[in-house]
Design a protein around this nucleic acid. Structure first.
Length: 650
DNA sequence: GCCGTTTTCGGCCCGACTGTTTTCAGTCG
């Protein structure tokens, strides 16, 4: 079992124990251990092999035993028993904001409800409010929560799907008869949430793909097994589709499977306007021809062979650190993160600034954009997957105005990270070492401010101590500059958590909302406006507060925030954590149109999470951002000179 | 259930907000 699968099993145990009414500290122990496993560098299976499971933080005798059972048998009698005791629907209810274990238990016991469907019906029939302590607001929260769950149904964050996609691609390439394999679909396009992992493999007739993959340890169920197509369901509930084609069909199939569907169809319409057909472009596979037929018929039905929407896709180049829209530069040969699987192509060197030793930082990618020829036959430059959403990319290509997209290699620093001073897990020195190992020239330590007590926000005394430590480290360390920053809370009443006299002492200030999420729009906007107008607030952190699949944004008017940022000279953040990606791609693009500079920050609480930068860069690319739009691609001097605090009176 | 150069037992992040209430329990970050 993989670390992620083990982590999910522990988290499920924790949830089920909580629903049973176990004491909170025991429940928390399961969740803490789950988190440890998610962030573990080494495979738990290896730790088990040398009897070292208890070295995992938060794992003692008891949990080590449960992990050992999972690792050796793939099952857990403890978890199986829990699942028998607690209806699975109750666990799903925990995902509804506002519902905790006590309320779920009360609803279960009071109304006999065990599924989300029953819960919805009860809320609509106003039966929830018949329970003591619950009222109409809870019913509303339930209905809203269910709506949010429906939106993300069967989809997972890119941060979960992409690592598995990279692993699968590497494993495919190791199989006999596989000439080439690439990630396609929404994973390749870098969408924030994905429904399935699409892979395209160029294979010889005697390949072993199906035979091996149906027995893959992470595969729970085979959904379809056809000569040229395999559909699988993983243990974690993700769907995987592998399309197998002869090598000569690989480019067109990859192109098709990457989507988006809207982009494909717009491309075919453009070709038709010019009197060209799919065949003229070299797109002669059955999928393309069927789609062309449908487009020409003016139809909106699905092309055969695939399911609906933009997820009928498959395959390849992930070009974050390589190819851009204007230059067909090579991408990077990709290894699978954290798996020790070697890169598939030995050729292209890592282009990431300086380093590349960490497998987590490597990127899958094709060495040349295999689809370039198709665009070329239409007289167009190559369009990277991140732009293929039918959001004006074809028109821009025709005008020769495709953006020169920012790449991971352009990033010179990370301006949002936490240390042990607040809720981070590492020292400033360790975070600095990790940032330097990534080739960064600068970084900012931005711990939480004093009101965020859960995150051990810093008192004025601690701020002083921290600043002294940073000054000392800057003396000692070569090759990286640490900025003394803060992530200051925008308090519920609109004040900032420190006075201006304190804020002006920092090198850089991020202001963020961590409380009062349910306030009315007017109040939220008043708080944001006050923060944006503060002369010492340089960056607005995670501007909408959303957590993908978990929490809706607070009542924010994003366009107004962008206008205010433009007016006040405040930088807006793309928080690169795959749980957030906030701003999202379309908002980032709007910010660019307003001339608002963007900082792509990881908000890392742990050195490993500095690698989340790639997700932020992907989101920025989907937002058409170019290096000059992103302040942490700038040289440090220029960055500092550009901060609002330093421009005042200048 | 985990953890310990103070502890092998008794702590474990804790204060604010929300919804439901007339004094507070539950949820959240």
């Amino acid at each position: 079992m993989t670390n992620l699968e083990l982590a999910w099993a522990l988290a499920e145990m924790g949830d089920l124990l909580e629903l049973k009414g176990e004491e909170p500290f025991k429940v928390r122990a399961y969740h803490r251990a789950a988190r440890s496993l998610e962030n573990l560098e080494e495979e738990a299976a290896d730790l088990y092999a040398r009897g070292a499971l208890e070295e995992i933080p938060g794992v003692g005798k008891n949990l080590a035993k449960k992990l050992a059972e999972l690792l050796t048998t793939g099952r857990s009698t403890f978890l199986d028993n829990l699942r028998r005791e607690v209806p699975p629907g109750l666990r799903e209810m925990l995902a509804i904001p506002g519902l905790g274990s006590r309320t779920v238990r009360q609803i279960h016991q009071g109304l006999g409800i065990t599924t989300l469907a029953e819960l919805e019906q009860a809320a609509r029939e106003r039966r929830i409010r018949t329970l003591p302590g619950l009222g109409s607001k809870t019913e509303l929260a339930i209905l809203r929560g269910l709506e949010m769950l429906r939106e993300v149904q069967d989809r997972v964050p890119l941060g979960v799907a992409r690592p598995l996609a990279l692993l699968l691609r590497a494993q495919l390439l190791a199989l006999p008869g596989v000439v080439r394999a690439e990630i396609a679909g929404s994973v390749r396009r870098g969408k924030e949430m994905v429904g399935d992992i699409d892979l395209v493999a160029a294979v010889e007739p005697d390949n072993q793909v199906a035979a091996v993959l149906v027995r893959h340890p992470q595969v729970k169920e085979v959904l379809a097994r056809e000569p040229d197509r395999l559909a699988l369901q993983t243990n974690l509930g993700l769907k995987i589709e592998v399309i197998m084609v002869p090598p000569e069909d690989f480019p067109a199939t990859l192109f098709y499977a990457t989507g988006s569907k809207a982009h494909r169809r717009a491309l075919l319409r453009l070709a038709a306007e010019r009197g060209l057909g799919a065949a003229d472009l070299g797109l002669v596979t059955p999928r393309w021809l069927a789609e062309e037929e449908d487009v020409l018929a003016g139809g909106t039905t699905e092309a055969p062979g695939k399911g609906g929407g933009s997820h009928g896709e498959a395959a390849a180049a992930f070009a974050t650190s390589g190819a851009t829209a204007k230059e067909d530069t090579p991408g990077v040969a990709g290894g699978a993160p954290g798996t020790g699987v070697p890169p598939a192509h030995a050729g292209a060197p890592l282009t990431h600034a300086g380093t590349g030793t960490n497998a987590r930082e490597e990127h899958a990618g094709v060495r040349e954009p295999v689809e370039a020829a198709f665009y070329q036959r239409l007289g167009l430059p190559y369009i990277v997957p991140e732009l293929r959403e039918d959001r004006g990319e074809l028109a821009a290509a025709r005008r020769g105005e495709l953006p020169h997209l920012v790449t991971l290699a352009d990033i010179r620093g990370d301006l949002h990270m936490h240390s042990r001073y607040s809720d981070g897990v590492e020292t400033i020195a360790a975070m600095a070492a990790a940032a330097r190992a990534r080739g960064y020239q600068y970084m900012a330590i931005t711990d939480h401010s004093r009101s965020l007590t859960v995150a051990r926000g810093l008192s004025l005394e601690q701020l002083k101590a921290q600043r002294e430590e940073i000054a000392r480290l800057n003396e000692e360390l070569e090759g990286i500059t640490i900025l003394a920053g803060i992530e200051v809370d925008i308090l519920a009443d609109g004040r900032l958590d420190y006075e201006d006299e304190v804020l002006k002492e920092f090198d850089l200030v991020i202001a963020s909302i961590h409380s009062g999420f349910r306030q009315e729009r007017e109040q939220i906007m008043a708080r944001l406006e006050a923060a944006l107008r503060n002369p010492y607030v340089d960056i607005l952190g995670h501007p909408t507060g959303r957590m993908l699949g978990r929490r809706q944004p607070y009542a924010v008017d994003v366009k107004r925030v962008i206008e205010l940022a433009a007016e006040t000279g405040t930088i807006l953040e793309i928080n690169a954590s795959p749980e957030r990606l906030d701003l999202n791609d379309t908002s980032a693009r709007l910010a660019k149109e307003y001339g608002v500079p963007i900082a792509i920050d990881t908000d890392a609480h742990d050195p490993h999470r500095l690698a989340d930068m790639e997700y932020g860069v992907l989101t920025a690319r989907r937002g058409w951002l170019e290096p000059w739009d992103v302040v942490n691609t700038w040289e440090l001097e220029r960055l500092l000179a550009g901060l609002k605090r330093n421009r005042r009176g200048a």
